[in-house]
Amino acid sequence: MRVLHAVTLHSPSHAFGGPVRVALNLAEGLRERGHEARLLALGEGFPDPWPTSVEGVPAKLFPARRILPLGFSGMTSPALLASAGRLVRDADLVHVHLARDLVTLPVALAALRAGKPLVLQTHGMVDPSGKLLAKVLDAVAVRRLLRGADAVLYLTPHEREGLDAVVGGPLAGAVRLVNGTPAQEGRPAPTGPPRILYSARLQARKRPVDFVDAAPAVLAAHPDAEFVVAGPDEGELAAVRARVSQLGLDGRFTVPGALSTAEVLAELRRAHVYVLPSVDEPFPMSVLEALSVGVPTVVTHSNGLARDIASAGAGRAVTPGPAGVAEAVLALLDPAENAAASRAARELAAGSFSMDAVLDTLLPVYEKALR
């Protein structure tokens, strides 16, 4: 089976975050099971010559052009748009990681026009919105695609409710598909000063400043603790740096910027605790990666993985804000607590969020669409 995975943007800094990681994980898993899976996306920030594969997955990347001041939604490529019809015709099935943008919407529409089996996965990116542009895109394309797709994959009941609201009624062909993560080598038992890691986009909703503000309470009990704030900047880097300086903690914080996949895994294997203090996070891949390596994890209650983490004992779910984060980190720095949570994290990732489990759900969806 030839499957085309279309996603908005791939870059060395992983600026588009989780949807690209999901697309790559699914494509890699499909290829391991004998299928042909390819990636289609805009590209940005690559030196010449541009890559023709990403982590072993064949990829067609088109140079991104920013035509509107709307972040990722304002990016497109005339060459991609001109090639979309041919690219979808070359596939047996088209799997679009759908957002309200000028990449995934045109590719999905091209698949619909070509009569190709079409699977949409929205990653929480298509939700009810009062913004004028969202209303226009919903009227022109989004509702048509959601109703016309052979399947629409959603992460959480909350996301499903939002999709129903967008289309104005119960969505046919909706299937719950959780994110998965490939099996990883577990981290060694942590040694040295406590090392606390944040590795995600530096974006307001992800609250990296809460991570910084939790540090003084942790340092009061562990004066040698080290903190890492890694990830591409989406508007919060200046605030993070300013807050670190205001607290006089420049010597305790490392801010390395965007990391490659290998660098993220290396940081996770050094970390005592992983923290993602964001709110309304649907199903973060960074948390799944931390769990797969065996890093006890702190999330807020509105995180889509909060209940799983708390019930498994793989970390802590807390009320948003630095006080809850600090309290949870301190609890998980206890050696016995850390070791138990680390084992639970590995078991949770391998049992509930393995790529085999995800593909066992996805492949019957593909087969039904092909029929």
Rank of each mutant, 00 (worst) to 15 (best):
V22I: 08
P170E: 09
G18E: 08
S342H: 14
E267P: 08
L80R: 01
A326K: 09
E367Y: 08
L370A: 06
V88N: 00
V96R: 02
Q184M: 11
L68S: 12
D233Q: 14
P216V: 15
G324I: 14
H301A: 11
A108R: 04
L348A: 10
R38N: 11
A99G: 12
A314I: 09
P182H: 14
V295K: 03
R66S: 05
A328F: 15
T261G: 08
R144C: 07
G56M: 07
G169P: 06
P284Q: 00
V229K: 07
A151N: 01
L120G: 05
A317N: 10
R269L: 09
A314F: 13
A317G: 08
V229A: 06
R21G: 14
L362E: 05
E263Q: 14
L237M: 03
G294H: 02
L153P: 11
L163H: 10
A183S: 14
N338P: 00
A314M: 13
L137G: 07
K116C: 05
R243E: 06
A110W: 02
P106C: 00
L118G: 04
P69V: 12
A79S: 02
E36S: 03
A328V: 11
L39K: 08
R243Q: 07
V107E: 04
K60F: 00
R147T: 05
S352R: 15
R100H: 09
S278V: 09
E55H: 13
R2G: 01
G85D: 01
G74D: 03
E161R: 13
L39E: 13
L276N: 14
A242W: 06
V299Y: 10
G168V: 10
S286T: 13
L348N: 10
G115R: 01
R195A: 01
R270T: 01
A59Y: 06
A189R: 15
V212I: 04
A314P: 07
G130F: 09
P322T: 07
G192H: 10
R346T: 12
R195W: 05
L155F: 09
M75I: 06
A326L: 10
Q246S: 12
L40E: 07
E36F: 01
L362S: 04
A220P: 07
D92K: 09
P282E: 00
R343T: 15
F211I: 02
L145T: 04
V218Y: 03
M1I: 13
L163Y: 10
K131G: 13
L288P: 01
L332D: 13
A114V: 09
